[in-house]
Design a protein around this nucleic acid. Sequence first.
RNA 1: GGAGACGUGGCCGAGUGGUCGAAGGCGCUCCCCUGCUAAGGGAGUAGGCCCCUAAAGGGUCUCGAGGGUUCGAAUCCCUUCGUCUCCGCCA
Length: 458
Amino acid sequence: MAPGPEPSYSHRPAFAPYGAKSTHQRTRPMHDIRAIRENPDRFDAALSRRGDAPVSAELLAMDEARRAKIQAAESAQAEANKAAKEVGAAKGRGDEDEFERLRKLVAEKKAEIARLNEEAKAEDAALTARLAEIPNLPADDVPDGDDEDDNVEINRWGTPREMNFAVEHFEIPAVKDAMDFETAAKMSGSRFVLMSGPVARLHRALAQFMLDIHTLENGLTEVNPPVLVRDEAMYGTDKLPKFGDDSYRTEEGMWLIPTSEVPLTYIAAGHVIDEDYLPRRYTAHSLCFRSEAGSAGRDTSGMLRQHQFEKVEMVSVTHPDESDAEQKRMLRCAEDILERLEIPYRTVVLCTGDMGFGARRTYDIEAWLPGQKAYREISSVSTTGDFQARRMNARFKPAEGGKPQFVHTLNGSGLAVGRCLIAVLENGQQDDGSVKIPAALQAYMGGRTMITADGTLA
RNA sequence: GGAGACGUGGCCGAGUGGUCGAAGGCGCUCCCCUGCUAAGGGAGUAGGCCCCUAAAGGGUCUCGAGGGUUCGAAUCCCUUCGUCUCCGCCA
C-alpha cells in the first residue's frame, strides 16, 4: 500500500453521535456483585484458574453487610419522608401543634438517617474497592497454566531464514551508528535510544505503513489522542489502582499513557451508545511510556524494552455478542502487518496464569528475531469483555429496546513500532552487513531497497 | 497567571424555593392515516441501588461531585472537579 491517492477512506467521526461527556464519578466496580451472589463457586473457580485464592465468601459477607445497611438507611428515610409530607399538610391545615410535633420528629430522625447513610456508604465503598483489586475472569476456552511456558501456539507463519551471520539489531553494521544508546543515556538515562538517519526514517515509515493499512484496508478510524491523561482514564482501563508504579505521573497529577489503549478506550466512557453505532474501531499511532519498574536487568541491551516507545494501537468497542469475533478480526489485522513485512511469527494464546489483569483472553504474536534466535512478543490482542466498560460506565442502548447494557472493549497492538523495527532490521540483515528493506515498505522509503553496511540508503 | 460564565434525561435545551424526575425539541418504539419514495396524527420512552418477584409492584437516590441553609432545593450558600469566554504569556 503506497502513499498516494486514497481509496475509500470512509470516515466516521470518533465521537459522534455522542458528544464529549464528563465522567467524573466515583470508582465503579469491575465485577458484577449480583453475578457473584448467584454463583459464587463459579467466580472462585474462574479465579483459581488464574492461580488466585477464592474471595467470594469474603465478598458476599461484605455485600450482605452492605445491603443490610442500605435497607436500614432507606427504610428510615422512607419514614422520614412520609412524616415530612404530613408536615406540609399540617401546616396547610393551620394545625400548629401537629406541625410542631411532626417537625420535631423529622428533625430527630435526621441524625439517625445521616448515621445509617454514612455506614451504608462506607460498606459500599469497601466492597467496591475490594472488587477493583480482583482481576478479570478468564474466558472458558483459555488454557489453564501457571506461566508463559503453558501458553499454547495456535498459528505459525513463515520460515526463519538460514543466517549464521545473524547478530542483534544494534550490532548490524548498517544500523550501528544510527541507533545511539550512549547519547540517549546522556540526556535521559538507560532504556532510551536516539535514532538517526535511515533507521529513524525506517521507524517512521513503519508507523505510517501500519496506520495506512488499518485505516484504508481494515476500516479503523484514525485517532490522534492525548498522551497525558487523568486518573479516571487510567482507572477506567484498569491501569489503576494496581499498576500505577509502572507508569509515569507528572507533578500536576497527569499520567503519561503506557499505551494508547487508555485514551482510545476511554472515548466511550460515560456514554450510552446507540447499538447501530457499534462496533467502533479506532487506531492510533502514539508514544507510550513505561517505567519498567519490575523488569530491572531484563532486555537491557538494544531497544527491545524502552521507557519510551511508539506503538500503533487498535481498539474496538463492540456489542457483547460480537467481541469474540472482533478479537479474531483484530488478531488478523496484526498478523497481516507482519506477513506483509515478510517477518516470520507465531501466535500463542496466553494461558490463565500469564494473562494481564484486565484480560479475559489474550493472543500474543511473537516475531522471529534472528539475532536472538527467538520469537519475541510484538503484539498482544486482548478482549476485556465488559470489565473495562463497567469501570468506565460505557453502555449501549439495545436496538430492540430495554435497559442499557455494558459494551465490550478490546485492544491490540498493531504493532509495536520499535519492536517491529527490530524485526525488520534483524530479518533483513545480509551477510555483508547491509539490511534489505521489505518491499511493502519501500514506497515509504523513497523507493530505496536497502540500507548499506555503512549506513546509507540505497 | 488575571477576570467572568457555565455544568439538567440517549442528544439538544427550558426551568432561580414547593404542585419537578424535571417543559419543549430531536432521536427511538408502537399504533393510525396516506398509495408513494416523503409527510401527517396519537401514545410511549432516564438511570443506579435495595426489597419482592413467575410477572407486576414497592422503596430510595440521582439535575457534575461533596457539604450546608430550609418544614421543603435543579433552584440559595460553601467547597471541589470540569468546560467555555476574554485578557496576559507562549509553541
